[in-house]
Design a protein around this nucleic acid. Structure first.
Lengths: 110, 110
DNA sequence: CTCTATCCTTAGAACTTCTAGGTATACTAC
DNA sequence: GTAGTATACCTAGAAGTTCTAAGGATAGAG
């Protein structure tokens, strides 16, 4: 559990990351931990998924990076939402709501 | 709308198809129409996605096919759930519920 | 000083969905 | 009768995301 069914993550990872960053700047490793903790260990984003995702989103202008130091004195790349990222987050939130509602309708159809 | 954000479909198409088939045998074209109608036009499964998906699931033993004739007197391949398909449907339903709940927790986190 | 946890990077595989073309037939409207 | 539309299936290839699996480096605990 927590491992399987993760194909569902496809198309939702960006939304999750953007949403975590809405609460303030953070770095890849911490974002993954946050998602894991917030979902009670249900979602587990691998590093090999997280970092490429961050690069994609930075390239697209949704997030911006700055090297910094963590609480534990380690070097880390902190990302923060851009204005475009905020808009993207809103758009993806709406899409998710619409989508999950739609799936729900099929699952509950007679 | 209905066109964009469809990346979300990834990993959910099988579940939707299996669920439609739980209501009785049907063929690709009709399954796509059913999903479209049930979701109030939100989800639109392309034929290029539907047919390969049906082959995959048949190959995996989740559904079984029989050629038949539709109400409108057209030749069509009717699929029905197998015992394994029913189990798969149950498993994917659970995964979906767990997953969508998890995403919801992230979206509603402070 | 060894071990674990933190933190980043990247190449390649795997997989699903979409695009975009094609075939064929029934029915409706003109 | 014939043009157009909706039905129904098929498939090759492109596109895109996530995972696997490797590697490197440092802080702190024991």
């Amino acid at each position: 559990m927590g491992k399987r069914g993760m194909d569902l993550l496809r198309g939702t990872l960006d939304l999750l990351v953007l949403r975590v960053l809405r609460s303030g700047p953070s770095h890849g490793y911490a974002i993954a931990k946050a998602i894991h903790a917030t979902t009670d260990e249900v979602l587990n984003v691998e590093e090999g998924s997280m970092y490429p995702a961050l690069y994609r989103m930075e390239k697209r202008g949704w997030i911006a990076a700055d090297w910094g130091v963590t609480d534990t004195k380690r070097r880390a790349k902190f990302y923060q939402l851009t204005t475009e990222g905020r808009a993207q987050l809103d758009a993806e939130s709406s899409s998710w709501n619409e989508f999950s509602t739609a799936v729900g309708k099929v699952l509950e159809s007679s």
